[in-house]
Amino acid sequence: MEYTYNVEAGNYALAGEASSSIKALLKKLGISGDIVRRMAIAAYEAEMNIVIHSKGGCLILKISPEELILISEDRGPGIPDIDLAMKEGYSTAPDEAREMGFGAGMGLSNMKRCADEFNIKSTVGIGTKVQIKIYLK
């Protein structure tokens, strides 16, 4: 099964809707609470990265009996130094986002912590794609 959720750049009022839908769907499918929680956290961090840093993008959720895959794909500035972006505490979030409590510099590392596999590819000036897998077995 595959589901796509569009995420609008800069829309803080709508932010969190895609992750909420993903959480509700996984719960309905009877997936265990711990896994639902890990995927919900990863999806929210991915969604907020799109809202804060990109020009728009989407989350794609793929569900199989063996694993959950979440792909976050955006159009935007891309990440010039991925190692630096992965470092906890490093953030390029604008003041507007920081005032709301975003921009802790933990988004990507939170995603990695929640995942069994984590991959990130970014092209400056084009966009960023993050893929995580969470094993169900």
Partner: peptide, 22 residues
Amino acid sequence: LSHVMAKCSPNSVWITVQTHLN
């Protein structure tokens, strides 16, 4: 918010001065 996502357990009480929708 990212600290809360990473560290806060289910069935918790969360104290924050943030009051927006997120």
